[in-house]
Design a protein around this nucleic acid. Structure first.
Lengths: 139, 139
DNA sequence: CTTGAACCTCTAGTCGCTAGAGGATGTAGG
DNA sequence: CCTACATCCTCTAGCGACTAGAGGTTCAAG
């Protein structure tokens, strides 16, 4: 308890300017200050910041994290909302994986088909120049 | 040939402001203009823009596209560089897929374990609050 | 009491666009 | 030729989630 911003940063693996940024956008409330106006944090703030960091690692946007934090502060409410937020996030992640998997296929094909000769016959360049040479047209 | 920016936009599915943006950052060179200073494009520019769009769809950054465009303009050079750029891109895509797949697992577990009761025992909230409850510690 | 690491605020930059203001131009119909 | 109006022009600012840096202050150890 009574951590400086640097200590909090080390404890949570969130960088110092990021902590200040979270305060600025209202994800963290303004902490206590020393006489000289330096920030001092307690356990509750460290826990909240860990929550945020963890949610960020799972790809939640700050707005979603804001909602999740609000929900976590009202334990009597149904968790249907938290569920819905998490579910939305999972769907977004799945869509993104699908997209990237298609891209990987395209890139792979492009690279393996390249004869490693000169640019004038380079498969990579050719495919980029002409979408018609792609296996899948949907991107 | 002799397309207005709007026609070029329709032909390439690249939005008008994006075309102007590409010109601004030097991916497209300043086109011919009418008396009244409106842009007019030819086939070569449409092809170049298609190249860019396609590379963007494959997730290449504008800087990488700049290199690829330069390579495509010097057909006698070895395509080792184009290869390397594409390979780097594929590795980045693969890393991202790996990350997202781990996240999906975590999210899935979080959601299925939630009893859909109240927030105070919500699995989603609990897991976010305490990273120790994650299956994989590496994120 | 001095040193120097860590802190403070503030502004600006990153990437790849996107939106909007406020005005000029091009083209089709009358 | 004139009018309407879609499209074009430039310019500035905004998005998300930080990151970097300037220029100055405070804290804690020795």
């Amino acid at each position: 308890m009574d951590l400086s911003i640097g200590e909090l940063s080390r404890r949570t693996s969130v960088k110092v300017p990021t902590i200040r940024y979270y305060e600025q956008v209202g994800l963290l409330s303004p902490p206590a200050r020393t006489e000289g106006r330096q920030r001092r944090y307690g356990e509750a703030e460290a826990a909240r910041l860990n929550f945020i960091r963890h949610a960020r690692e799972l790809g939640f946007e700050l707005e979603a994290i804001r909602e999740l934090l609000e929900l976590s502060g009202s334990p009597d409410r149904s968790c249907a909302e938290a569920d819905a937020i998490a579910r939305r996030q999972m769907e977004a992640v799945e869509r993104r994986i699908g997209q990237l998997t298609a891209l990987r296929g395209e890139l792979e094909r492009m690279i393996t088909e390249c004869g490693h000769g000169h640019v004038c016959e380079c498969r990579v360049i050719q495919v980029l120049a002409d979408h018609g040479q792609c296996a899948h047209a949907q991107h």
